[in-house]
């Protein structure tokens, strides 16, 4: 557990002489992380309208920009992990962030936090869902919120895509463009795109290693 904690705690000390006091503060920090994780996933899950990808933007805002517990590149790796397992991106995204921050217990906390909002909402709506479905004002509210969700995702794409462009790595920029065209226009399954990118990375590594060796 302490090891997990140090992963996420950039200012954490790694000295070997851990006193009781330090252990205490570690424990306190660990439970602080768990609570923060629980409330964040609970809150964010309630706003994952429009297919779940919006949770990527929301978690980036919370854990990368506000708390600084995860760095931006790592966040993209975590999304790739979330995407390569079966299941919804909203749940898997919370799971992988939970694991990163607090190990297996983090996963449990993140799952509980993520499941409570849809459980409560569907539980309540199951009683009168025809009235909800056909309510004009709710439809209007949701229509507007789709534009907002689109904007939240667009903003995170500008930011993350900007980082890729700034790397000035021609191959990566080309890859981003090709992957987008394949996924958005030709509707190629994301698993193939992830697989293709992994193969490209392996080829590139061998190529570079061969060149360094020569």
């Amino acid at each position: 557990m302490a090891k997990q904690l140090e992963l996420s705690n950039s200012s954490g000390s790694t000295s070997s002489d851990i006193t009781n006091k330090k252990e205490d503060s570690h424990k306190k920090r660990y439970s602080h992380i768990l609570w923060q994780l629980f409330f964040s996933t609970l809150f964010l899950s309630a706003f994952t309208f429009g297919g779940g990808y919006v949770i990527v933007s929301l978690m980036k805002k919370k854990f990368v920009d506000e708390l600084g517990w995860i760095d931006a590149e790592e966040m993209l790796d975590l999304i790739a992990i979330a995407q390569s397992a079966p299941g919804a991106i909203a749940v898997n995204g919370a799971l992988v962030v939970g694991y990163k921050l607090a190990g297996f217990l983090g996963i449990v906390v993140a799952v509980v936090g993520t499941l409570i909002p849809p459980f409560v909402i569907i539980g309540v709506l199951s009683l009168f869902y025809t009235a909800f479905r056909s309510n004009f004002w709710i439809a209007l509210l949701l229509e507007g919120m789709q534009a907002g969700v689109g904007a939240v995702i667009a903003a995170v794409v500008f930011q993350m895509g900007g980082n890729v462009l700034e790397s000035r790595d021609g191959l990566l920029i080309l890859l981003m463009g090709v992957a987008f065209i394949l996924n958005a226009i030709f509707q190629v399954n994301v698993l193939f795109i992830i697989g293709g990118a992994i193969i490209l990375g392996i080829i590139r590594y061998w190529h570079q290693k061969g060149r360094d060796g020569a």
Partner: peptide, 13 residues
Amino acid sequence: VLSTLRPAVVAMI
């Protein structure tokens, strides 16, 4: 591998 995976993830988002 991770560095080539990241642009693909941005494309998926």
